[in-house]
Computed example of a mutant assay.
Amino acid sequence: MDGLDLLKQHWQKNNDFPKVDKEAIRGMLYKSSSSLVKWIFIISLIELSLGIIFNVWYFFSGIKVEYSEESLWLDYLDNTATVIGYFITFYFIYAFFKAYMKIRNTKNTKDLLNDVLTARKRVSQYISFNIYLIIFSIGLGFLSFILENHVFEKGTGEIILYLTLMIIVGGLMGWLFISILKLYFRVLYVRLVKKLEKNYDELIIMENEDDIPPSR
């Protein structure tokens, strides 16, 4: 149990605990929320850096897929999706950094609550974006396989066999990648967001208590 939990526990047990300690808890919740959003920002920045490193390595490794003239548009689509993906990732990183700076500098509980809600919403959108990007990449890969191997120029039986195998393999690969991605997000982002939500709930309780007029 960290210092914040110990202080909250002591404060909740003793109604006569000095108000200064309640304000100390509020300040620690502010600091904790700022730290959580900072880690979300750092992790997303590391992910972006690793993605850039991988793409640079892939570009210079000489193993890049060579598209035929008939499916050259897939290469353009792949490159366009990559560029758009980077722009969107940059947007989320900027949003996380902006949320971190706002939470770090805010002195108003209501403003902090709005900032926490915004940060939580951005994290949810970022997770969804990455999952959709994986699904799109898998679909693009299988479409490339179909075109490069001229599947639709084969006999009806072969077409059915190819498509059946691709649906099964594609479904299994998609399920595996998405499961791994969800596990990754659950271990990192979801844990941070849950702690952020806990801070949010604590601040809501404090705000409600502050709004209750003292009994006479």
Rank of each mutant, 00 (worst) to 15 (best):
residue 47 E to Y: 14
residue 49 S to P: 08
residue 49 S to K: 13
residue 50 L to M: 15
residue 51 G to R: 12
residue 51 G to K: 14
residue 51 G to M: 14
residue 55 N to K: 12
residue 56 V to S: 14
residue 59 F to H: 14
residue 59 F to N: 14
residue 61 S to P: 07
residue 64 K to G: 14
residue 65 V to G: 08
residue 67 Y to M: 07
residue 67 Y to F: 08
residue 70 E to M: 08
residue 73 W to P: 00
residue 76 Y to T: 08
residue 76 Y to G: 10
residue 76 Y to H: 09
residue 77 L to R: 06
residue 78 D to S: 10
residue 82 T to Q: 15
residue 87 F to Y: 09
residue 87 F to C: 11
residue 87 F to L: 14
residue 88 I to L: 11
residue 88 I to G: 09
residue 89 T to Q: 13
residue 90 F to V: 05
residue 91 Y to N: 08
residue 92 F to V: 01
residue 92 F to T: 01
residue 93 I to P: 01
residue 93 I to W: 01
residue 94 Y to C: 07
residue 94 Y to G: 13
residue 101 M to G: 05
residue 101 M to V: 09
residue 103 I to Q: 07
residue 106 T to M: 12
residue 106 T to L: 13
residue 109 T to I: 06
residue 109 T to W: 04
residue 110 K to G: 10
residue 112 L to M: 12
residue 112 L to K: 07
residue 115 D to R: 10
residue 115 D to T: 08
residue 115 D to M: 15
residue 115 D to W: 11
residue 117 L to G: 13
residue 119 A to I: 04
residue 119 A to R: 00
residue 120 R to T: 11
residue 121 K to M: 12
residue 123 V to W: 03
residue 123 V to C: 02
residue 125 Q to S: 15
residue 128 S to M: 15
residue 129 F to E: 12
residue 129 F to G: 06
residue 130 N to K: 05
residue 130 N to Y: 03
residue 132 Y to A: 15
residue 133 L to Q: 08
residue 133 L to H: 06
residue 135 I to C: 04
residue 136 F to Y: 10
residue 136 F to D: 11
residue 137 S to T: 02
residue 138 I to C: 04
residue 139 G to I: 00
residue 139 G to N: 02
residue 140 L to D: 01
residue 140 L to Y: 02
residue 140 L to F: 00
residue 140 L to R: 03
residue 141 G to Y: 02
residue 142 F to T: 01
residue 144 S to V: 03
residue 146 I to P: 00
residue 146 I to Q: 02
residue 148 E to L: 01
residue 149 N to L: 12
residue 150 H to L: 10
residue 151 V to Y: 00
residue 151 V to T: 00
residue 153 E to S: 05
residue 156 T to Y: 05
residue 156 T to F: 12
residue 157 G to P: 08
residue 157 G to R: 13
residue 158 E to H: 01
residue 158 E to W: 03
residue 158 E to G: 03
residue 159 I to L: 06
residue 160 I to K: 01
residue 160 I to N: 07
residue 161 L to Y: 05
residue 161 L to G: 06
residue 162 Y to G: 09
residue 165 L to C: 09
residue 165 L to T: 03
residue 168 I to A: 05
residue 169 V to T: 02
residue 170 G to T: 02
residue 170 G to K: 01
residue 171 G to Q: 03
residue 172 L to T: 00
residue 172 L to H: 02
residue 173 M to Q: 08
residue 174 G to F: 00
residue 178 I to R: 00
